[in-house]
Design a protein around this nucleic acid. Structure first.
Lengths: 143, 143
DNA sequence: TGTTGTTAGTTACAAATCAAACTAATATCT
DNA sequence: AGATATTAGTTTGATTTGTAACTAACAACA
């Protein structure tokens, strides 16, 4: 490869970051404007809504998020009355997090918004492109 | 699409962000450990090294970076003696940014590191996947 | 039982980011 | 020329993030 072939737009860390930023900005307005949520809060909410009640540690592991970030997001969502904590009987270090009814409603709303936002993005790609894109991103995330 | 088909790993803003994070972390050590640089500093340096001297505004536009971020990165790179500013004669609001010799050396080093890091990542993909991935990311960034 | 280690989650402080206000230089319009 | 608007870039203060130290609950083992 000569130097001329390698510019920033083909450097994966850069290209991925640019693309991630571009799509994030568009989706932010749903959770930010409507519910005053931060990105980590939206993720925690999504995890609970999509995969059911679980512990903060569970979210950390599934989402590759640091525990301090999750801790703060959980606190914020609790303040908003979107979730409740229940310490586990057999081990009081663990607390089960579960969405409140209100949290469920918000989740449903954001879930629909996410689906249609994603559909809007997908419209720019062929089925093959979309499939390969998914596969590549998944592979990269697991490196 | 049923709900079961739509989980976080297929939601583009999420999947892109996870992938971007994963690749960024691996590349950070090059500019962070060796040169104490931040991500924006690395980007500014790369722009100047790859595309030649230009103004801060030019970098903002090309890299879609906010001017405050660039301003601080330029200051940091100046402190490290990696670049110099020269106010333009005909319009003293503009200052041309150019790498110093030392900056060039650092750029070359990081450029090589980037190329080989990218090659290492690319090894996980077929030529077709890599091509489509590039195309998709480029499209998304321009939305 | 007591000591040591581990784990879930929080807190505190430093570093980084964002938005908005600001300065200085130039352009425009009367 | 003089008033107003733009533009490049910086500074400031509030918000957000990252790192490391911390607490509390439990486990393991002498």
């Amino acid at each position: 490869m000569t130097d001329d072939d390698f510019d920033l737009s083909r450097f994966l860390p850069y290209a991925l970051n640019q693309a991630a930023e571009a799509t994030s900005i568009g989706f932010q307005k749903y959770y930010r404007q409507r519910y005053g949520m931060l990105r980590t809060e939206w993720r925690v909410l999504f995890h609970l809504g999509r995969y059911g009640a679980m512990t903060a540690k569970g979210i950390c592991d599934r989402a590759s998020l640091h525990k301090t970030k999750v801790s703060r997001a959980v606190y914020a969502l609790e303040q908003k009355r979107f979730l409740v904590r229940t310490p586990q009987e057999q081990d009081r270090r663990h607390e089960t997090l579960a969405l409140t009814r209100q949290g469920q409603v918000v989740y449903s709303d954001l879930f629909e918004a996410a689906k249609s936002y994603d559909a809007k993005l997908s419209a720019h790609f062929t089925a093959q492109e979309r499939e390969i894109l998914n596969r590549c991103l998944e592979k990269i995330s697991k490196l």
